[in-house]
């Protein structure tokens, strides 16, 4: 009986001691955190994609509460959820223009000349370190789909031509494909930018066309047809200098189709042509 009493007293004593330590720790080491951070984070999609420019949703929530960012920078969430976040914080939603990844190459299997077989590791970055695969063009898409693998939102799919097609609806412009592509073929463009140069080869003239049927050979017709300064030829390649002033007239005379009008997803016409071809056959 006596031993049980001692044990009970010792345990109570220990519990009391740590209770006091914890109470003091709570008093002196307390970190005050804005409760709104948790609320805002709860309303964000939680994908940690990085499209807003922050490393994850938690730090985006912190930035929002601090006023360092705007709710509209989250391109993954629905407009209603963003309005919700904005109303919690009492700020303007400030919707950003939707952006999407665009591929600057249209050199699919049937367009680009093939010089050799690549049989190594099936990854663009692996093919890139050994002679850049077997294609005649050293700047174009290798077609092994590293961007397809890296995309968190399942927005990139390889088409029959071996080119990655970005689903504009699903794309959040997080930039993972831009980082992973060893040839730097992706850029993030506003969806309203419809004139896209689908080639990255600095070759001009015959050299470019010999390597790939759809290469920009720097003939300069697009630059002539566009408004003054909207499209330029720099380094053997057409460059859209001012997306708002470049209109579809500049694509009409392109002999290879390297500069194209893109509504929605890229390479749709290519698939249509293929469909037509297959029906003919």
């Amino acid at each position: 009986m006596n031993e049980i009493a001692i044990a009970g007293l010792v345990m109570t004593g220990i519990a009391g001691f740590f209770g006091v330590v914890l109470a003091l720790a709570n008093r002196f080491f307390r970190v005050v955190e804005d409760p709104r951070i948790d609320v805002v984070e709860g309303k964000l999609p939680g994908t940690n994609c990085g499209a807003c420019g922050e490393p994850g949703c938690r730090s985006f929530a912190e930035a929002l509460v601090k006023g360092a960012s705007v709710p509209g920078k989250c391109t993954v969430s629905t407009p209603a959820a963003i309005e919700d976040v904005a109303s919690v914080l009492g700020v303007d939603a400030d919707f950003q223009e939707k952006r999407t990844a665009r591929l600057h190459c249209a050199g699919g299997k049937s367009a680009v000349r093939r010089l050799a077989d690549y049989q190594g590791e099936s990854s663009c970055r692996a093919a890139f370190v050994v002679n850049g695969g077997g294609r005649a063009c050293s700047w174009g898409c290798l077609g092994l789909g590293d961007c397809d693998v890296v995309c968190t939102f399942d927005a990139i799919h390889m088409n029959d031509e071996g080119l990655p097609v970005v689903d504009v609806e699903a794309c959040t412009a997080c930039g993972d494909c831009v980082d992973v592509c060893p040839l730097d073929l992706f850029t993030l463009e506003a969806v309203s930018t419809e004139i896209i140069v689908q080639c990255s080869s600095p070759l001009a003239g015959e050299g470019a066309r010999l390597a790939c049927e759809v290469a920009c050979d720097a003939c300069g017709r697009c630059a002539l047809d566009a408004q003054e300064g909207a499209v330029e030829i720099t380094g053997g390649l057409a460059v859209v200098r001012s997306p708002s002033r470049a209109t579809e007239e500049c694509t009409f005379r392109c002999p290879t189709g390297a500069i194209a009008v893109v509504h929605g997803d890229q390479f749709q016409e290519m698939e249509l042509t293929q469909l037509r071809r297959s029906r003919h056959a």
């Binding site: 190594g120 590791e121 990854s123 970055r125 692996a126 370190v129 060893p182």
Partner: peptide, 13 residues
Amino acid sequence: IPLVHLIRVGKAM
């Protein structure tokens, strides 16, 4: 396993 090939990719990474 293409070890050296993968390591070359790794060096680029």
